[in-house]
Nucleic acid binder design. Structure first.
Lengths: 120, 120
DNA sequence: TAAGTGTACTATTTGTATTAGTACACTTGT
DNA sequence: ACAAGTGTACTAATACAAATAGTACACTTA
């Protein structure tokens, strides 16, 4: 569920933050569902517990999870804000990509062909 | 022409590499045109000459520039490969973004509206 | 000859992530 | 009451890569 690439340039704790966010966005982790325990996940990923803790602390600061000492860490009840932020981010990235494509002389037709290749 | 963000996470030498590539792709730098001298650019960007040299070495290894000791560094005569690679990269990023958007429940209509907002 | 160019090399510094180790307070289940 | 499992907190040490500092050499151009 939560994975990490030790060789990546992005810090492990950040990968964990992103991984948890993805799990929530994809529905893999539902509201009030418990996250893996700090120590357990550390063993599973073969990294230091402090690194997991750092990730959970960041997630808690962003109101994406809440932690109860002695109990565990859990997904926040309301994940709407997270979904909204992700949505906005995707739109923004798409616009930037289109700008770049236009500057690079990629035709609108080529782009539309690709977009239309995606079902629905 | 070539800019750098000291606060960015991506290494300065890599920013320079990307910056030169962009300048070439946008036509700001034409074939056989001379790049700023290592020492001069170092002064201009207020960074160490070694960092510039590292960037130029990488660009030369990728056949994007060629260097002549005593003369300077110049844009390669044939920049077609660079343009092709950039084109392929954009297409790939677009596909990935569309995948993500689909997974996030963004409607095709919303995407088409954005794409159609880009002239031509 | 002088100035400007790329190239090469080693040592050092710096910043940040990560690890290591320990300790405390709380909750749950027995 | 107890043990096990949980989050939390803190300091020190380690590791690694980027960036800097400093110097030197070979070449080209005016």
């Amino acid at each position: 569920m939560i994975t990490v690439d030790l060789k990546s340039r992005v810090p492990i704790y950040e990968q964990i933050v992103d991984s948890v966010k993805s799990a929530i966005l994809s529905g893999l982790l539902g509201p009030d569902e418990q996250l893996p325990a700090v120590r357990k996940l550390a063993v599973e990923l073969a990294i230091n517990p402090n690194t997991i803790q750092k990730a959970y602390t960041i997630l808690e600061a962003q109101s994406i999870v809440y932690s109860i000492p002695g109990r565990g860490s859990f997904v926040s009840a309301d994940t709407g804000a997270l979904a909204d932020a992700h949505h906005a981010k995707l739109i923004s990235e798409l616009k930037q990509l289109l700008d770049d494509a236009k500057r690079s002389g990629i035709s609108k037709k080529e782009i539309l062909d690709i977009v239309n290749g995606y079902g629905e």
